[in-house]
Simulated assay, not measured.
Amino acid sequence: MGRFSESIADDEGETGIDMSPLIDCVFILLIFFIVTTVFVEETGVEVDRPEAASASQLEKTSLLIALTAAGEIVYDGRNIGIGGVQPLVRQMLQKDPVPIIVQADKNSGSGLLVQIIGEAKAAGAEKVSVAALATGG
């Protein structure tokens, strides 16, 4: 009986959960979510876009330029002004030919919007769009 009681005492001392497989699974899930995440680039300001019946979804890879109601031209949270549109578009088009989307506030001036489109076209942009909210119709 002495041998039997010693083996039971040894088994009770080693009760535990091996954490290595659990940690491996967590790291694999973390890597999966990092790789599959799609980052949407925003302009950095809130723009109240006008509604349009013909609005459609555009590509996710695009250059977003915002025109605020105060007349500021914003890219990536920075006010670039009308003089900064052409160099920005030219620089971005050197990397990859992407469409240009202008998110104009509905209370902004149309003259400045036309200037932004003209600067983007002068920089070599082939496709320049104006962002709008789609209506239910």
Score class of each variant (00 low, 15 high):
16 G>N: 08
76 D>A: 07
40 V>D: 13
136 G>D: 15
85 V>T: 02
102 V>L: 03
49 R>W: 06
1 M>Q: 12
75 Y>G: 03
5 S>G: 05
130 V>A: 10
98 V>D: 07
46 E>T: 06
134 A>N: 07
4 F>N: 04
3 R>G: 15
17 I>N: 04
137 G>K: 11
80 I>K: 02
108 S>R: 01
63 L>V: 07
30 L>F: 15
87 P>L: 01
95 K>A: 12
2 G>C: 08
3 R>V: 12
102 V>M: 00
18 D>G: 00
100 I>E: 05
76 D>E: 08
82 I>F: 03
121 K>H: 15
2 G>R: 04
118 G>E: 05
51 E>S: 09
94 Q>L: 14
48 D>G: 07
25 C>S: 15
15 T>A: 06
101 I>P: 03
131 A>F: 07
73 I>H: 01
64 L>Y: 06
59 E>S: 09
110 S>G: 09
21 P>N: 13
88 L>V: 09
23 I>R: 05
1 M>A: 14
3 R>M: 14
9 A>D: 00
25 C>P: 12
11 D>C: 00
116 I>H: 00
55 A>C: 00
62 S>W: 13
137 G>L: 12
25 C>F: 14
53 A>Q: 04
122 A>F: 01
4 F>W: 06
58 L>T: 09
129 S>I: 13
130 V>E: 15
117 I>D: 03
20 S>E: 10
14 E>K: 01
36 T>V: 13
93 L>W: 09
52 A>T: 02
80 I>L: 04
123 A>E: 09
133 L>S: 09
74 V>K: 02
80 I>D: 07
78 R>Q: 14
46 E>L: 06
89 V>T: 05
98 V>R: 12
95 K>I: 15
59 E>I: 01
127 K>Q: 11
45 V>A: 10
122 A>I: 01
114 V>L: 07
69 A>K: 06
61 T>D: 14
42 E>M: 11
101 I>M: 08
105 D>G: 00
50 P>G: 14
133 L>C: 03
96 D>F: 03
88 L>F: 10
31 I>E: 07
49 R>I: 15
118 G>P: 03
22 L>W: 00
21 P>L: 01
36 T>L: 13
5 S>F: 08
31 I>T: 05
30 L>I: 14
15 T>K: 06
40 V>T: 15
57 Q>S: 06
39 F>W: 13
70 A>C: 04
126 E>V: 09
97 P>I: 00
91 Q>W: 10
123 A>F: 05
48 D>R: 03
136 G>S: 11
70 A>S: 11
96 D>S: 12
55 A>K: 01
89 V>C: 01
99 P>A: 09
7 S>W: 11
129 S>R: 11
43 T>V: 11
35 V>C: 10
81 G>P: 02
78 R>I: 08
70 A>D: 11
86 Q>H: 07
102 V>G: 00
104 A>G: 02
131 A>W: 00
